[in-house]
Design a protein around this nucleic acid. Structure first.
Length: 556
RNA sequence: GGCCAGCUGGUGAAGCGGUUUAACACAUCGCCCUCUCAAGGCGAGAUUCGCGGGUUCGAACCCCGUGCUGGCUACCA
């Protein structure tokens, strides 16, 4: 046994498997040419961030459109920042957006042949690789205390040297295996470091799928790969996991770009094929004239749950995020108004380079557009799902009579240019509750917004009575309106607004005023969809009842 | 401090040396349509592409400086 092998045995006596065993257990995937394998690898440090949703959407879309594999992996190596239960919550929220992993960590269970998918369960795999690294002289134990490391940093800063553990400053790198073993036997605490042979003066060409070729300084840092708690650092876990899970495309935030030379060296020394990298821009927010990351603490829209709770349609959020990723999506959408969002092909070279400012107004516009294009059944289904979780009043309305609800929300829907009045599912209840008799009766307790400054109570009652005795509900929309004009004229109102304006003295008011009186009487509101549709839904009996109640209220 | 990335109207952006008088979408404003509203239609706003030089007959696009913004520089990811 060589000295390095003895050292490896001393540190990892429990490791019996070899890299070859791992290679066999996690074989290359058999996929179609061009199929991508990508992953969502969150840390369970809180709930889903809008920026993470953006990154996930991209990591999910590419495998999806190439018949590849999208998997999830829980990066729970930072035990200090871990929030209990958040991993599960993350997966639930993703599912709410229709993003379902093909394999991996599923929240409560795991699925797939490349697991475990929780880093804390992969300890033996990391140890197996590091044991091999030690034998090959690629990794070594470092006994430097955090105090001596701080001292080193201070020294380097004082002398304007690059900070870090490298070159001549990597003291433990020059320890002989014998010396190292002696220290270990002596019970000295240590971490495992990677032995870099890079030189900071050298440049390395790296390739990013979004940014193209970039030249960076070669890595020379002997980074920690195994922390004193026995868990790997991100860099090492990335190497091992993405290799043995056979990831083809690593998509991650652009904050990882500077550490790419580390990953290049890691893959090179391990002798493994490197994945492709795409570093995604971060979604920003304008704050006092400065751009900054969307912050969970300051911006409610930074939490995905905000959109869910407020009833934003998930397809609207997704669509907005795709617009940020590939702005040519908008053009595509204009050509394909009703097409499924997932038939759009996302591409890396169309990807934006700088972090977009999150634009709620645009999100809302897209949501409104999307909601208007759902057919009444789908709309109802989704509204109901939302209502069950977040809006009990809305749920009660739907439960009472689904078909009645559908007829209401179907006003001017399912047509070429549909009515667009809901931005979120939350908007539904306040807009439609007047359709329900009991809600109407409650609303009637408030002051009605009639124009009492222009019309007397008697005039209003006259109009309402005339309408009540001749509603014209059997006509079509135009016929109904013509009929209403006739009623208006009989009551002394001009059937034509323009004419009225020319000759105001001759009339009490115009057709719009009459229409408004009826609208208010049947809905208590000044703004509603065309009264014709409202009347059709309410039916003659209910309309009569409402008008009687209004007249009674006016007389009181 | 060092290294990296980015910088085109209020926002997302198109553009990749010459019909660009700088597309398109959102937002804003104006007008039109209209019985209210949601829409819809039409139109306006960047004297100009962070700034300064240069190359060129010609530059948002190429080169050089410079500024600003963001990121990285951990036994965090």
């Amino acid at each position: 046994m060589t000295e390095l092998e003895q050292l490896a045995e001393l540190i990892f006596p429990d490791v019996t498997e070899t890299i070859e065993d791992l290679e066999k257990r996690y074989p290359e995937r058999t996929l179609e040419e061009g199929a991508m394998v990508a992953r969502f690898a969150p840390s369970p440090t809180g709930f889903l961030h809008t920026g993470s949703l953006f990154a996930t959407l991209i990591a999910w879309k590419f495998p999806k459109q190439t018949q590849g594999v999208f998997y999830t992996r829980l990066e729970d190596t930072d035990t200090k920042r871990e929030v209990a239960g958040s991993g599960e919550e993350l997966l639930k929220q993703l599912a709410a957006f229709g993003i379902l992993p093909d394999e991996g960590y599923m929240g409560t269970y795991e699925k797939g042949n490349y697991g475990p998918y929780k880093q804390s369960d992969r300890e033996m795999i990391y140890r197996t690789v590091i044991k091999d690294f030690v034998k090959r002289g690629l990794a070594y134990p470092c006994f430097c205390s955090s105090e001596s490391l701080t001292e080193l940093r201070d020294y380097q800063e004082k002398h304007k040297l690059n900070p870090g553990y490298y070159g001549e400053f990597a003291k433990c790198a020059s320890l002989t295996p014998q010396e190292a073993m002696a220290k270990i036997k002596n019970g000295e605490p240590y971490v495992m470091r990677f032995r870099s042979t890079g030189n900071y003066q050298n440049r390395v060409q790296i390739t990013d799928l979004i940014r193209g070729d970039i030249e960076l300084a070669q890595n020379d840092q002997h980074i920690v790969i195994l922390k004193s708690d026995g868990l790997p650092t991100y860099h090492f876990a990335h190497l091992v996991d993405d290799h043995f899970m056979r990831t083809t495309h690593v998509t991650r935030g652009e904050e990882w770009l500077p550490s790419l030379p580390i990953h290049y060296e890691l893959f090179e020394k391990a002798g493994w094929k490197r994945p492709n990298y795409a570093h995604l821009p971060v979604i920003m927010k304008l704050d006092n004239g400065n751009r900054r990351k969307l912050s969970k603490r300051k911006d409610p829209e930074a939490s995905v749950s905000y959109f869910l709770e407020n009833g934003y349609p998930v397809e609207g959020i997704l669509e907005y995020l795709i617009t940020i990723a590939n702005s040519n999506f908008e053009e595509w959408r204009l050509q394909n108004m009703n097409a499924d969002i997932f038939t759009f092909m996302l591409s890396f070279d169309k990807m934006t380079l700088d972090g977009a400012l999150f634009d709620l107004a645009k999100v809302e516009n897209i949501c409104k557009e999307r909601l208007s294009r759902l057919d009444k059944d789908t709309f109802t289904e989704k509204a109901y799902a939302y209502a069950c979780q977040y809006d009990s009043k809305l749920k009660a309305l739907i439960d009472r009579d689904v078909d009645y609800f559908k007829s209401i929300i179907n006003i001017e829907r399912e047509k070429e240019n549909p009515r667009k009045d809901y931005v979120t599912y939350r908007d539904i209840y306040p807009m439609i509750h007047f359709f329900y008799a009991d809600a109407y009766d409650t609303l009637l307790e408030n002051e009605l917004p009639f124009q009492f400054d222009r019309f007397t109570t008697e005039q209003i009652i006259t109009v309402l009575q005339a309408f009540k005795s001749n509603m014209g509900l059997t006509y079509d929309e135009n016929g109904w309106f013509e009929n209403l004009k006739g009623i208006a004229e009989k009551c002394g109102f001009c059937p034509n607004v323009k004419e009225y304006k020319k000759n105001k003295e001759a009339y009490l008011g115009h057709i719009g005023d009459v229409s408004e009186m009826i609208r208010i009487a049947i809905s208590t509101r000044k703004n509603t969809p065309n009264p014709y549709y409202v009347l059709q839904i309410l039916g003659e009996k209910e309309v009569s009842r409402r008008i009687e109640k209004v007249i009674e209220k006016l007389n009181y």
